[in-house]
């Protein structure tokens, strides 16, 4: 396929990043992104918040500030009470407000299956765009939310998760990546992405591709929600984790002592996951400490960037 070209497109389709970036002036660029999905929690208000946090996250992952948002709605109006939709949109509005952005419109259609999400526009300085694959050898990798939402959501579907666990994972998915992004803005970060459907290693593979570098992840240092291993060990692993793993098999080299449950957790598809940040090693501890002080859900240095040109992910 041939895409239309424009010199002002700083990040476009050919780079497959978290969002598109278009330069307006020398010191202002527009970030544009869209994301929507089917319900992942039963409560409509929380679903609205999670879907909005997930859509806003792409702007944060590019190093930007969200400014405006538009609703995208597919709703089975004949079968479902309109109040469900009201609650979803209220959840979205509350999350957009928390991000200091505004809802300026939207579009809804009748759909057999409920869908909700946002199109989000944000601002960034053209020189401060955080792309995915600008890794540098020696960098450290920091993750800002624990993994496990895919496996725990599967356990929730199986009615095997306790109310406390459901509550915790719901709040985690609804948490904005705003604080992480704002904290990162004060540091010379080389690359950033957010962790969603491809899982930690799937998104890391996107960072590594085209970077000319390899990475090493220390699985014991990766923050993971405490119940995840137990559920994964009982066979509550979503199909997406297997797809992610087989898709990236050739790139990923596991040490012998990284067991199958850990591998599945590292490929577990996340909903509204954290930011994965690549930063020079001498700045990494300071950034992790700053993230920790500001109370982001996790602030763990989980690995490092190695010299290329292999473009592999080593997991120990």
């Amino acid at each position: 396929m041939i895409f239309p070209k424009d010199d002002n497109v700083l990040v476009g389709l050919e780079r497959a990043d978290d969002a598109g970036v278009y330069r307006i002036t020398d010191d202002l660029a527009l970030i544009q992104t869209v994301d929507f999905f089917t319900p992942i929690v039963d409560d409509p208000y929380w679903f609205g918040q999670i879907a909005a946090a997930n859509a806003l996250s792409d702007v944060y992952a590019m190093g930007g500030v969200p400014k405006t948002a538009m609703n995208l709605v597919g709703f089975p109006i004949k079968e479902m009470d309109i109040d469900v939709l009201r609650q979803i949109i209220q959840g979205g509005i509350d999350k957009i407000r928390e991000a200091d952005a505004v809802l300026v419109g939207g579009h809804s259609i009748e759909d057999s299956e409920l869908k909700y999400g946002l199109s989000v526009t944000g601002f960034v300085h053209p020189a401060r765009v955080r792309v995915k694959n600008n890794l540098r050898p020696g960098d450290r990798l920091i993750l800002t939310k624990p993994l496990g939402t895919g496996i725990i959501n599967t356990a929730i579907k199986a009615a095997m998760a306790a109310p406390g666990v459901i509550d915790r994972v719901t709040r985690l998915m609804a948490a904005l990546n705003r604080t992480a992004a704002e904290t990162m803005a004060d540091f010379p970060v080389h690359a950033c992405t957010d962790i969603t459907g491809f899982g930690l290693l799937g998104h890391l593979a996107e960072m590594v591709s085209g970077s000319g570098c390899s990475v090493r992840i220390e699985s014991r240092k990766v923050p993971i929600l405490p119940e995840t291993a137990a559920f994964a060990g009982m066979g509550l692993v979503p199909g997406g984790a297997f797809k992610n793993k087989s898709f990236r098999q050739a790139m990923t080299i596991f040490d012998a002592d990284v067991d199958a449950v850990m591998q599945d957790m590292l490929f577990d598809p996340q909903t509204s996951g954290g930011l994965l940040i690549s930063i020079a090693s001498e700045e990494a501890d300071a950034l992790a400490a700053a993230l920790g002080r500001k109370g982001v859900p996790a602030a763990d240095v989980i690995g490092e960037v190695l010299d290329g040109p292999l473009e592999k992910i080593f997991v120990s």
């Binding site: 060990g233 009982m234 066979g235 509550l236 692993v237 199909g239 984790a241 297997f242 797809k243 199958a260």
Partner: peptide, 15 residues
């Protein structure tokens, strides 16, 4: 009929 389900059921039965 798929490897993912096979692994999950295997783990569940073992557990």
């Amino acid at each position: 009929d798929n490897a993912a389900s096979q692994q999950n059921v295997e783990r569940f039965l073992r557990s």
